[in-house]
Amino acid sequence: MQEFEPKIVAFVCNWCTYAGADLTGTSRIKYDANVKIIRFPCTGRIDFMILMKAFENGADGIIVSGCHPNDCHYSTGNFHARRRWIVFRNLLNFAGIETERIQFSWVSAAEGFKWADVVNNTVKKIREFGPNENYKKIAVSTLFNEEGTSNE
């Protein structure tokens, strides 16, 4: 059997983490290639439904990352985001979704090394966790492949 390669989607803030990830690259720091980065104007813009969609579309893990507190380009976006994450994690946990699959972090534009660490650690963690089976069962592809129509 092929070894499990986690698919990670990273939702990052344009002003800090995206620049930080850029720095990781220009500094030639190597990190796992499992991550696909999606750039947002601010972590405050990252709606919880976007994270849910990532799972539905096959993500095994998610990274959400933005500016450190007090460093937000828009002053308070990350503070607002933080509150919502606190509540959202509670809800996910209660609904039976592994919160470990979502890694939240603060990575500034100067923290190229930290970004590599966040990614590597998340990939390692998700590798141990295994594929996101619960969500695979309810994916569109499952619906597509299901046999015909039954009356049961």
């Binding site: 994690r89 890694q103 972090s105």
Partner: peptide
């Protein structure tokens, strides 16, 4: 500014 959490690295 000091909302408490323990999961953001």
């Amino acid at each position: 500014p000091d909302d408490k959490e323990n999961f953001i690295i």
